[in-house]
Design a protein around this nucleic acid. Sequence first.
DNA 1: TACTGGTGCGCG
DNA 2: AAAGCGCGCACCAGTA
Length: 580
Amino acid sequence: MSAVTAQTEPAAWIVLGREGDAAVAVVLDALGAERGREWIAAGERTAWIARHESAGARWVWADTTLWYPALLAEGVRVARCHDLRLCHAVLRDSAAVTDAAQLRAATAWDRSPLVDPRADIPTLFDLDAGPGPAVLPTDADALLAEFGRQRAAVAGSAAPGALQLLLAAESAGALVAAELRAAGVPWDVAVHRDLLTAELGDLPVGGGTPPRLAETADQVRSALGDPGLSLDSQPKLLRALHRAGVAVESTSRWELAEQRHPVVAPLLEYKRLSRLYTANGWAWLDEWVRDGRFRPVYLPAGVVTGRWASTGGGALQVPRQLRPAVRADPGWLLVVADVAQLEPRVLAAMARDTALADAARGRDLYEGVVASGAVATRAEAKIAMLGAMYGATTGDSGRLLPRLRRTFPRAMALVDDAARTGEDGGVVSTLLGRSSPPPSEAWHEAQSRAGDPEATEADEVRARRWARDRGRFTRNFVVQGTAAEWALAWMADLRGRLAAIAPVDEASAAPASGPVFARRPHLAFYLHDEIVVHTPVERADDAADAVRAAAASATRLLFGDFPLDFRLDLRIARTADKDG
DNA sequence: TACTGGTGCGCG
DNA sequence: AAAGCGCGCACCAGTA
């Protein structure tokens, strides 16, 4: 069948799915009308996709993790896609969608992606192998039906433009997540090992506890006069502390630090070393770093706010202590950039609070808040602003909030309204239309039970607490979620700019980054408000320019001409360490 | 043996 | 034991 080659206008969308045992591509025009189908032989799939990609196709698939890793491994980059699984989740819950009944009924799309964080090579989703591990619909007609539902939901929504933008950003994020894993974080194993040895001593050859950890544990045991104590059991440790006269209610670091007792110093040191050893020690290196790359699995929208989660290797918890091990390949550099005070800036822009924007523009936002006269010091400004976004009610933070409300009434009204809506059981939404999940059945029951004439004091206390808990969640949801949208827009724009930078020649290649990224700047790490780009030395300035331009572009896309800049702390360096 | 919940700590 | 949001992971203890 040659319906695709016969057509004259370029395809608007190409849906990739299955029909019976065969892979099939369904070509749609801009209105979503089918213009043709083509069956693709298994061995020709990659070449077919590459050919249509260069003609400007936009791909529609059930789940980016099913298709894209294999394409990347074979050297094919994709510019745009529509991830049906991720978009389904957004539209199903969005308050902007007028009638989500059909989407809610399509429960086959309510699935998590199948990912194996330990897999070295991305597994090819084999359309020829039958249903196999597929947990999402793969049949082309099922995909077409879902795509139709989604298009109808957007078109009939209260905010088609914003939702369109959100779906595009979400899908681009899915591409970025796959690309981050394919390229990997350049990781210098020697630096990491040296750091472990310096802290923990040489790893015993036959296994066993590292010497510095063992010595520190012995110091703790002798300070407590308990030679057989197991330090890794919280209940046992707590009892031993009490026996030794240390009046703590927990074994957490901050509480121990307030005590004056000889056990405190070695115990805190033990906790620090133990954490390093168990979370990011030699075992972690062996399991997660191969060929000089750490390849975490990112889960776009893994958090209800739209933030990413990760699985395997603790990708989003790499301790700052290990940042020196994030090191560019020889002949390459890192562009390390993070956004200064992303969330308060997002709050200022989405609330159109010009006073807060004035405080933020061209400078450290917290210094600007001090300059506004609302608070006296930068530390106060920070704690007050975080308290406003997290819902603090007591302590320094709670005490400073009224002053923030006077100075920045619009911004504070936005988060206060979100909190009230949440406490009342309502749903809140981000700038682009991602909505918070509704309260659980148990939550509603607790609220109605408290309203009952027979309600006990305990019923009422619990209902109030749950209501306030939910209010803090929705208060933060609007800010955290919109910040995630800004970050998605930043990365989506950046990946296009980086792809447009001329590749370097073969002599400068970094093959561990895979065929798509071996010769050009690429994203290597992402964490909520910061990114790392790995770039050939001779392209580092271009890459840094791209990072800055993408941030400006994301700001314009989300907030138009609202007068606020999103400042980047950006440096070009060998390592991701602050002092590197 | 395979769970689940609690605790603690890493990240933003 | 955080006051105040969102996560993942290691470890232990209790249970099925």
